[in-house]
């Protein structure tokens, strides 16, 4: 029960952090384009503004699915982000099943496109078919890379066990084994597709399908969808950092400076991961076509993930 309480207490923290991360992302993106950019708390303004706006449901929409999916998407991605964060704060592995976390994050992005395709708008339908294509592309390498490191750390699929393994072995996993390093690279490559930013924002490409699934959403529903997206970004960066790059020195910080320091170091690390895997690609690449993106993922991260899995089974 304590674990559940901690989890519930983490939810508002996830909300704040994911919007803050989005704000930093936007600011850095703007500075790379030599713009001034919005204030860092701009996502909070956007969220609040959208909450008080009118909610419009198109007549062609399948009402129940259309209305339910934003809440489901936001809830699952926030919980998906809260589980690792709660584990980090509580330092237990009591509710930290990695399969559950990955499932929740995938659930969130599927709910977004399901809602979009139920809107009755042809652009929503195009966005749906594109997203499913993308899911097949990136989800398999992403999952394989998680399985690959969980074999190395135990084998255990408990989130905190993987961190403990890193503390015990006195090395972060990405530096310890070749297989885990490959897995880390795969995971990092998959983040930008999993969160759907340029070059892989194909399902919701603005100039092609006008935000695809989001096209008919407005007001609070849109706010929830945006929140779902930014907390997915936050969650994946946090996972990427703590699963692969949890340096034991971060743990030792808590002995000197207290537990807050460890958490802060983790968040700083995941911020770096986000800047590297989300902000930088979306600044320096053009959007790919769906066929090109699909090919990219099947020819590069997928073989890498399989290699990593085989290496880890062989004990490298």
């Amino acid at each position: 029960m304590i674990a559940l309480e901690i989890l519930l207490a983490t939810l508002p923290l996830v909300f704040l952090l994911s919007l803050l991360f989005e704000g930093i992302d936007r600011k850095v993106h703007a500075r790379m384009q030599r713009r001034i950019g919005p204030p860092i708390i701009q996502p909070f303004y956007d969220f609040i503004k959208l909450l008080v706006k009118e909610n419009i449901v198109p007549t062609t929409a399948a009402r129940s699915i259309f209305n339910a999916s934003p809440s489901l998407a936001a809830a699952s991605s926030i919980v998906g982000a809260a589980i690792p964060l709660a584990n980090l704060i509580a330092r237990t592995g009591i509710i930290g099943d990695l399969i559950l976390v990955m499932y929740l994050l995938t659930m969130s992005s599927i709910m977004i496109v399901v809602g979009g395709s139920s809107s009755g708008n042809p652009y929503g339908a195009v966005g749906f078919s594109r997203k499913i294509m993308m899911l097949i592309g990136y989800e398999i390498p992403l999952l394989i890379s998680v399985v690959s490191i969980s074999i190395k750390a135990g084998p255990s699929l408990i989130y905190y066990d993987i961190i403990l393994a890193q503390i015990k072995s006195d090395k972060c996993l990405a530096c310890a084994y070749i297989s885990s390093a490959t897995a880390a690279l795969t995971f990092l490559l998959c983040i930008s597709a999993a969160v759907g930013v340029v070059p892989f924002d194909i399902p919701e490409a603005k100039t092609e399908v006008i935000h695809g699934p989001l096209i008919e959403y407005s007001g609070p529903q849109l706010a929830l969808l945006k929140l779902a997206k930014s907390s997915t970004i936050f969650s994946l960066s946090l996972l990427a950092f703590t699963l692969f790059f949890y340096f034991p020195t971060i743990y030792e910080l808590s002995i000197v400076l207290g537990e807050i320091a460890t958490l802060g170091a983790c968040l700083l690390g995941s911020l770096m991961v986000m800047l590297l895997t989300v902000t930088l690609p979306r600044t320096v690449f053009a959007r790919l076509k769906i066929g090109q993106a699909f090919k990219t993922y099947w020819f590069f991260p997928l073989p890498m993930a399989i290699t990593s899995l085989m290496l880890s089974v062989l004990g490298w």
Binding site: V28, R31, M32, Q33, R35, I36, L280, T283
Partner: peptide, 11 residues
């Protein structure tokens, strides 16, 4: 892009 990050914005 990285160089621009440390330059003054053009705005």
């Amino acid at each position: 892009a990285l160089k621009s990050l440390f330059k003054k914005p053009l705005t």
